[in-house]
Amino acid sequence: MEGRYSLLDILRGASVVAVGLLTLVLLALLPGPGFRTSRLVLFAVVILFGWIGAAGAVSGRFGLLLTGAIGQFLLGFWNFTIGLVMLPTGAVLLVTALLLREDPSVSSERRPL
């Protein structure tokens, strides 16, 4: 083992860290003023999309990464406050997905799209 990591490996780790931070921020904001069941559902869906993308980053699945990134972007415009965390997370997932798509070392069966 050389100890050298490719940009894709670094972005895979950054994707998981970004989704972990997103989860922590949303869990911290959840009990804030104005709590409703709709906030709980929105946060649960946002966290679900984030972890779908993180699973795609770890397993090297382009489709999962793209689903997580698109979900983060679409739901990030819903609420400005959580969008400040979601949009950068979606950007990291999207960049990871694009680099994964262009990486020749990833086998073609892992890239269904």
Rank of each mutant, 00 (worst) to 15 (best):
M1D: 15
E2I: 12
R4M: 15
Y5W: 13
Y5V: 12
S6T: 10
S6W: 08
S6E: 09
L7P: 12
D9V: 14
I10W: 13
I10M: 13
I10D: 09
I10L: 12
I10T: 13
L11Q: 05
L11I: 07
G13F: 07
G13P: 08
G13Q: 08
A14D: 09
A14K: 13
A14F: 10
A14W: 11
S15H: 05
S15R: 02
S15V: 06
V16I: 13
V16E: 10
V17E: 09
V17D: 10
A18E: 01
A18M: 09
A18T: 07
A18R: 05
V19C: 08
V19A: 06
V19L: 06
G20T: 12
G20S: 15
L21F: 14
L21N: 07
L21W: 12
L22C: 14
T23C: 06
T23Q: 02
L24S: 14
L24N: 11
V25L: 12
V25S: 11
L26E: 11
L26Y: 10
L27T: 13
L30T: 14
L30N: 10
L30K: 12
P31D: 11
G32V: 11
P33F: 14
G34I: 00
G34L: 02
G34T: 03
F35M: 14
F35R: 13
F35L: 15
R36H: 08
R36P: 05
T37C: 11
T37N: 13
T37Y: 13
T37P: 11
T37I: 15
T37E: 12
S38D: 05
R39G: 02
R39P: 00
R39V: 00
L42R: 08
L42Q: 06
L42T: 02
A44L: 15
V45E: 07
V45K: 11
V46K: 02
V46I: 10
I47N: 06
I47G: 02
I47H: 06
L48W: 09
L48A: 04
L48I: 05
L48N: 03
L48H: 08
F49E: 01
F49S: 01
F49C: 02
F49P: 00
G50C: 08
G50E: 06
W51H: 04
A54L: 04
A54K: 03
A54D: 07
A54R: 01
A54T: 07
A55W: 10
A55C: 08
A55Y: 14
G56E: 00
G56D: 00
S59I: 12
S59L: 14
S59H: 14
S59V: 12
R61S: 05
R61V: 02
R61C: 01
R61I: 05
F62Y: 08
F62E: 09
G63K: 11
G63L: 12
L65V: 07
L66K: 04
L66T: 10
T67D: 01
G68M: 01
G68S: 06
A69H: 00
A69C: 04
A69I: 01
I70R: 05
I70G: 02
I70W: 05
I70H: 05
G71L: 03
G71M: 05
G71I: 03
G71C: 07
G71S: 03
G71E: 01
Q72P: 08
Q72Y: 06
Q72C: 12
